[in-house]
Amino acid sequence: MMKKLKIYGIAFKNALATRLAYRVDFIISAFVMLLFELTIPFFTFMIYQNGAGFPGWSFNEVLLIQAGFLLCKGITFPFFAGIVWNTIEHIRNGTFDLLLIRPLNPLFMVMLTGIDIKDLGKLIGGIALFTIAVSSVPGSSAINWIFFAFLMICSILVFMSFAFLMAASGFKWVGNFRVYDIFESLTAFAMYPRSIFSKALQFLITAIIPLALMGFLPASVLLNRPPADIWISLLSCLIFLVFSIFFWYRMMKNYSSAGG
């Protein structure tokens, strides 16, 4: 484990040095990532600014959902989710073999070479937004904060599961970067109060695809109103993660290059 952490540290330094070769572009890219992610909170702000809103939810409460989501995304994307574009790119170029012959697990290898520093903008935005949102809602107990931290880890696991699934699709669906569009459209369900959706959708995003865990459920704990079915989502998260890893390895077997 320590060895892997050390290797990850070296890979992170390399990725940072590579990106800093074009410093202005790096700063602008990170800023753009932040700007892009803030469009949904901005959208919510505009709704509330016009005197409307989601019944039973104040703007700051909705902002907390979106801030939690952005925080987890900000942790996942720069450090782990690079496996998506990296896998797809390697498969398209036929260079995935280079990762297979290295003396490390291919999934870890593709994660190492896919560290995307510019996505740190998401993390900065997530921290800033979360700080603002938390300071705008009533305080919560220490127990709730511990449970919240646990749910955030689960949320990161759901993000990673999506990354594994998207990356795995690249083995069959060569060169299709539009999997990101699918991801963005699906995760929109995670950024709003669950109660606005129909009962069937609420069940779907809680028990089948644990999207609610990516934003709504952690925030509901901090707001002292966790729903009773929260444990179903935790179970679903575990199944989703195991399935996504299994799917990645299963799909990897479909890989063929010039050498056959």
Binding site: I47, F54, P55, D181, I182, S185, A188, Y192, P193, L201
Partner: peptide, 23 residues
Amino acid sequence: VSLIVGPVSFLVQYFIWQAVYSN
């Protein structure tokens, strides 16, 4: 992919605005 993304994004908007217009 637009056949998934377009309707799914619209579905989210559908519920958002249903909630907004409830009052």
